[in-house]
Design a protein around this nucleic acid. Structure first.
Length: 776
DNA sequence: CTTAGTAGGATTGAG
DNA sequence: TCCTACTAAG
C-alpha cells in the first residue's frame, strides 16, 4: 500500500507516534497522505478506527476524505471520526453537554441569527444601533472567542471597552436563555470546558489516540488550543498544511500555528512534500518566482516530473469588457480544439467582477457556473422554513420564532412584536410561551392579541404533529401549508416567488432524502465500546429514527448544496473559493494594483501584501496545463472608473518563462505600455478591429498538447449552488418549462439568473427565470 | 401592514 | 454601479 507513495509521503504516512507537521505544497498529494495515514494506523498499527480523529475545515474536504478512505480501507472511514472542526465539536458538546454546561439540545445560530440576537441585546441594553454597529459587535464577539477570551479577560478600562464587556455578558446570557450556540461557541465552549475540567480532558484526550488536522495554516487560536487539549495525553498530533496557501487571516487564521508548530512541540517531526503532480514546470516556476518574494515563509520549493509546458501568458486588455472577450476567445479556441469546457476556470478577486463575464458568456451562449455568492441555506425562504422547524425543535429559540412571527404576513406588526418581546423578558419566559400569555396588560389586545394567539395555536398544532412522529418531509410540507407560506408565494405569481417555492420544495426534498438515508439505520453493535463515550452516529436518535434535531444540525453545519453538473460549463469563482481545486486551464483576471493586490497604495502593510501574494500563488497553482493572466488598463469597479497599474506580482514573474501580450514589465518594474487590444464599437461584436491581437492571443494561449487522460488524483467535487444558467436562452429559441411545456423565447432580461419572456402556445407570455427553462 | 424610495456601504466567507 | 437595509408614505 505504501509502495505508491513517494519517500516524504511515505515518511509522513508511516510516522509512528508523537507530533508531526507535514508541509504539503499545492498538488503534492496532501489528501492522499492523510487518508493513507489513517488507513495505516488502523490496519497496520491496529489503532481502533474510532480512536482516530481527523479534522478538516469544510464538509466537502471531510466528505472527500471519507470517500477516499472507503476505497483504501473499507470499514475504517465509517468508524473513524472525520469531520469539520465545527461538526466534531458540536457532536462532543451534545454528548458532554452537562459537563460543559450547555443544553444538549442547543440550536446552532448562524451569522444572521447571531446578528438578530445582537440587535435584541442592544435593545435590551438601550444602546443605539448606530453607535454600536451589530456588524462590528459580531466581529468583536467572534474575535474574542477565537482568542479564547472570557468576559473577565476582556479589557474593561475605557468607555468603549466597558460597553463591550456589558454586551458580551448580555449576549452570552441571552444565548444561554435561547439554548443557542453560535459558530464560534462550538469551539470556544468546548475548549473552555476541556481546559477547566481535568477529568473531561483526560477522558476525551484519552479516547482519541491519533489526531490529524488538515489545512492547519487556516486554524485560529481557539482551534489550536482544541488540538492541544485533545492531544494532551498521547501527543499523537499530525498537522498538515501549507503556509504559502494561508489566505484567511481576515477570518482569524493564524499561520503561526503551523510555522511555530515545532516551537509548540519541540520534538515534532517535520516532513516537506515538495513534489508536485499537478502542474507543468513552467507554471510552477512562475508560481515560485512570485511566492519567493515573501519574507515570512517556510523555505520550500515545488518541483515536478511533468512536462515543461507552455509559458504562462500575461495579457493586457483595455477594460473589463475586453477582458471578457479574452475569455470568449479562449473558450472558442478551446472548443475548436475539442477541449473540455469543464476544465476552464475564471478567477477574480471580488464577486463584483463576475457580472461582466456572465453577460459576455450569456451573450455568446456559453454555459457557466458560478461558485460562491449566495448560498442555498442563506436564502430567505429556506431560512424561514428552517426557522419554523427550529422552533418546533427548541421552543426557547426566540430568534427563530421572531423570524417567522409575521412570515407570511399575518398582521403582527412591529409594535406587537416589541410588546411580545417585552412581556417575555419581563416574565422571564420564552417568546413562545409569551404568545399564549400576553394580554391587555402587555398592551396586546383586540385583533393583535387574537393574531398572536392564532400563531401560538399554529405552532402548537405543528408541534403536536411533530411529537406524534410525523415524518420529516411531511412535517416540512405541513409547515408550508398550515402557515400559509405556500399560498402566499403562489398568490404573488412572480418569477421570483416561483423560484422561492422551487427552493422550498428542494428543501423538503432534502428532508425526505435525509430521512431515507438515516431513518432506518440501525445502531452499530460492533462499536459499543465507542458508543458509551461519544456515540457513533449523531444523525440517529435513540429510537433509530432520523430526528428533526439531527436534520437541523446537519443543515446548520452544511453550507454547500451539492448539485450534479449538467451540460458543459466553464466555472467562475473567487480565488478564495478555489483552494484545493485544479483545472487544466486557469484564467486569472484583474491583476492590477489596488484590485489584486487589494490594498491602497502607500498604506500597504507588508504582511497584507504577503497575504495577497499567497492568494496569487494559490491561483497560479490551480492550473495543470495552461495559465493565462489578464490585467486591464482601466476598469469600472464599485461605480468608480479608474486607470490601473499592472499588479506588482506580474513584475515578479520570470520573464524567460512567461509570454506577455500588450505590456511587459521593464527591468525597473515599471509599466511599459503598448496600446493594443480589441476594438470597442460593440462590446461583444463578432469581429475585432485588431485581428492581430486575436491572432497573437490565439497563438500564445493555445493548449500545447492534449491534456493528460481523465483520471486526476485530486478530481474536484462539484459544489455549485444554483446561480447557474444552462444554455443561455436567446430570442427565438425553443425552451421547455416543467409546468408550461414548450414555448418560444421572446426576450431576455439580463440578471443572475436572467429573466426570460416566453410565449407558450395557448397560455400567452410568461416571464420566467432562466434556471427553470431548458432548451427544447 | 405593505410598498416605494433612498441612504449608505461595498474584499475575500468555512461552519 | 448595484445591492441591502432601514424609513416614510399609502
Amino acid at each position: 500500500m505504501a509502495s505508491d507513495l513517494n519517500p516524504p509521503q511515505r515518511e509522513a504516512v508511516l510516522h509512528g507516534g508523537g507530533p508531526l507537521v507535514v508541509f504539503a505544497g499545492a498538488g503534492s498529494g496532501k489528501t492522499r497522505v492523510i487518508t493513507h495515514r489513517v488507513a495505516d494506523l488502523a490496519l497496520r498499527r491496529h489503532v481502533a478506527p474510532w480512536r482516530i480523529l481527523a479534522v478538516t475545515f469544510t464538509n466537502k474536504a471531510a466528505g472527500e476524505m471519507r470517500e477516499r478512505l472507503a476505497r483504501l480501507a473499507p470499514g475504517v472511514g465509517e468508524r473513524a471520526w472525520i469531520g469539520t472542526f465545527h461538526a466534531v465539536c458540536a457532536r462532543i458538546l451534545r454528548i458532554h453537554a452537562e459537563r460543559v454546561g450547555v443544553r444538549s439540545s442547543f440550536t446552532i445560530y448562524d451569522d444572521q441569527d447571531q446578528r438578530a440576537m445582537i440587535k435584541r441585546v442592544l435593545r435590551e441594553l438601550r444602546l443605539d444601533e448606530k453607535q454600536h454597529r451589530p456588524k462590528e459587535i459580531a466581529q468583536f464577539l467572534g474575535e474574542a472567542k477565537q482568542k479564547m477570551q472570557r468576559a473577565e479577560d476582556l479589557p474593561s478600562s475605557g468607555y468603549r471597552e466597558g460597553i463591550q464587556v456589558r454586551i458580551f455578558e448580555a449576549y452570552e446570557a441571552a444565548m444561554a436563555r435561547a439554548g443557542a450556540l453560535d459558530f464560534g461557541d462550538l469551539i470556544y465552549r468546548l475548549v473552555l470546558a476541556l481546559e477547566k475540567d481535568e477529568r473531561l480532558r483526560a477522558e476525551l484526550a484519552g479516547r482519541f489516540e491519533h489526531l490529524l488536522v488538515d489545512e492547519f495554516q487556516d486554524t485560529n487560536h481557539a482551534q489550536l488550543r482544541l488540538v492541544r487539549a485533545l492531544g494532551s495525553v498521547h501527543r499523537n498530533i499530525c498537522v498538515v498544511g501549507d503556509d504559502d496557501q494561508s489566505i484567511y487571516r481576515w477570518r482569524g487564521a493564524d499561520r503561526r500555528n503551523i510555522l511555530d508548530f515545532q516551537r509548540d512541540f519541540p520534538d515534532a517531526h517535520v516532513v516537506k512534500l515538495e513534489q508536485n503532480y499537478r502542474s507543468t514546470q513552467r507554471i510552477l516556476r512562475a508560481a515560485y518566482a512570485v511566492i519567493h518574494n515573501n519574507i515570512d515563509r517556510e523555505p520550500k520549493q515545488l518541483w515536478t516530473e511533468n512536462d515543461e509546458g507552455a509559458p504562462p501568458l500575461v495579457v493586457q486588455v483595455r477594460d473589463e469588457w475586453d477582458e471578457a472577450r479574452v475569455l470568449l476567445e479562449l473558450v472558442q479556441q478551446s472548443r475548436e480544439d475539442g477541449l473540455d469546457l469543464e476544465q476552464i476556470v475564471v478567477f477574480y478577486r471580488t464577486h463584483a467582477q463576475s457580472r461582466v463575464f456572465e453577460e459576455a458568456l450569456r451573450g455568446a451562449g456559453v454555459g457557466y457556473r458560478i461558485i460562491g455568492g449566495q448560498r442555498f441555506y442563506d436564502r430567505a425562504e429556506v431560512k424561514d422554513l428552517l426557522a419554523y422547524l427550529r422552533v418546533l425543535d427548541n421552543p426557547n429559540d426566540d430568534i427563530s420564532l421572531l423570524r417567522v412571527l409575521n412570515v407570511p404576513a399575518r398582521g403582527i406588526g412591529k409594535t406587537t412584536e416589541a410588546r411580545l418581546l417585552e412581556a417575555a423578558s419581563r416574565r422571564g419566559i420564552s417568546v413562545y410561551e409569551a404568545l399564549r400569555e400576553v394580554g391587555p396588560e402587555d398592551g396586546v389586545k383586540g385583533k393583535a392579541r387574537e393574531r398572536v394567539r392564532a400563531f401560538g395555536k399554529l405552532l402548537d398544532e405543528l408541534s403536536a404533529a411533530h411529537e406524534q412522529g410525523l415524518a420529516l418531509g411531511e412535517l416540512g410540507t405541513r409547515v408550508l401549508e398550515r402557515s400559509g407560506y405556500r399560498l402566499s408565494l403562489e398568490q404573488q405569481d412572480s418569477p421570483e416567488a416561483e423560484a422561492r417555492l422551487e427552493n422550498l420544495l428542494e428543501l423538503v426534498g432534502s428532508m425526505q432524502s435525509f430521512e431515507l438515508a438515516n431513518g432506518a439505520l440501525p445502531l452499530d453493535a460492533e462499536d459499543e465500546e465507542a458508543e458509551d463515550l461519544v456515540g457513533q452516529e449523531p444523525l440517529v436518535d435513540a429510537t433509530g429514527e432520523a430526528s428533526l434535531s439531527a436534520y437541523l444540525e446537519r443543515v446548520s453545519l452544511e453550507t454547500q448544496a451539492d448539485e450534479a453538473p449538467e451540460g458543459e460549463r466553464i466555472t467562475l469563482m473567487t480565488i478564495h473559493a478555489a483552494k484545493g481545486l485544479e483545472f487544466d486551464t486557469v484564467l486569472v483576471t484583474g491583476m492590477e494594483e489596488e484590485l489584486f493586490p487589494m490594498a491602497r497604495p502607500g498604506f500597504a502593510d507588508p504582511s497584507e501584501i504577503e497575504e495577497e501574494r499567497r492568494l496569487a500563488y494559490v491561483a497560479f497553482t490551480r492550473a495543470r496545463r495552461r495559465l493565462i493572466i489578464s490585467h486591464a488598463r482601466e476598469r469600472r469597479l464599485f461605480g468608480r472608473h479608474r486607470y490601473s497599474v499592472p499588479s506588482r506580482f506580474l513584475s515578479e514573474l520570470p520573464p524567460d518563462d512567461v509570454s506577455f501580450i500588450g505590456w511587459q514589465p521593464s527591468a525597473s518594474g515599471l509599466a511599459r505600455p503598448r496600446r493594443r487590444g480589441f476594438g470597442h464599437d460593440d462590446p461583444f461584436g463578432p469581429d475585432t478591429d485588431d485581428d492581430s491581437f486575436a491572432d497573437e492571443f490565439a497563438r500564445a494561449s493555445a493548449m500545447p498538447s492534449p491534456p493528460p487522460g481523465s483520471a486526476h488524483d485530486d478530481a474536484w467535487l462539484d459544489a455549485s449552488d444554483g446561480c447557474d444558467v444552462d444554455d443561455a436562452p436567446r430570442p427565438g429559441m425553443q425552451v421547455r418549462h416543467r409546468k408550461f411545456g414548450v414555448g418560444q423565447v421572446r426576450g431576455v432580461e439580463p440578471g443572475s439568473p436572467p429573466k426570460v419572456r416566453v410565449r407558450f402556445p395557448g397560455r400567452g407570455e410568461k416571464v420566467l427565470l432562466a434556471t427553470f427553462l431548458e432548451p427544447a
